[in-house]
Design a protein around this nucleic acid. Structure first.
Length: 177
DNA sequence: TGAATGATGCACT
DNA sequence: GTGCATCATTCAC
């Protein structure tokens, strides 16, 4: 329900801005592949490589609407939380619609880490895969706004409305919580 | 209800 | 050594 577009080496907000490094090499390959990176030493964020081979463009999955496997999502969150601060595991009372309402939360809910980088998201039967879901004819419900947390890229890139979300959806990262 | 802060690993200069 | 495509907790009001 919420994504951000990153355009490649020229996009100063993209991890591709330093060229193909060990971490970002997969972005420079063919599309339909996962790029999972660790941010702030704590959160694993899921991207889909989208550009043609060599373009290094990608889409960050910032929030999803949980539909199935909510118990697994709670387990993933509890595990990451316990690991983060040796705090004891306790019941996760987060409302269903907020279980993956942020890029770090998506990674936690799906139990992802950087080892998922390179996974083919288009392979039938893959453990992590893209499937057709939301109706294309509801495109008018999608709203565009500036990307979150990319001020370091400078006003030109930071102001581009490349964050796309379903207007008013309860599972977004920003308006709620 | 909102602002400040701490946690924490790695890529980069 | 610096800062980050973040989140939960704490503290102020």
């Amino acid at each position: 329900v919420e994504v951000e577009a990153y355009d490649g080496p020229d996009d100063l907000a993209s991890h591709a801005r330093f060229g193909a490094t060990q971490r970002t090499a997969v972005m420079f390959g063919p599309p339909g592949v996962a790029y999972v990176y660790l941010v702030y030493g704590m959160y694993d964020c899921l991207n889909v490589v989208t550009g043609t081979d060599g373009a290094a463009s990608a889409v960050l999955i910032r929030a999803i609407e949980p539909l199935e496997g909510l118990d697994h999502m709670r387990a993933g969150r509890a595990l990451q939380r316990a690991r983060r601060r040796g705090r004891p595991m306790r019941e996760d009372r987060t409302p269903d619609h907020l279980l993956a309402s942020g890029p770090g939360l998506v990674g936690a809910a799906f139990g992802l880490d950087t080892s998922w980088t390179g996974s083919d998201l288009c392979a039938a039967g893959g453990r992590l895969r893209l499937e057709r879901g939301w109706d294309a004819d509801r495109v008018d419900e999608i709203t565009a706004s500036p990307r979150v947390g990319v001020g370091y890229a400078g006003p030109d890139w930071a102001s581009r409305p490349w964050r796309f979300s379903i207007a008013g959806h309860p599972s977004l990262s920003r308006p709620s919580r």
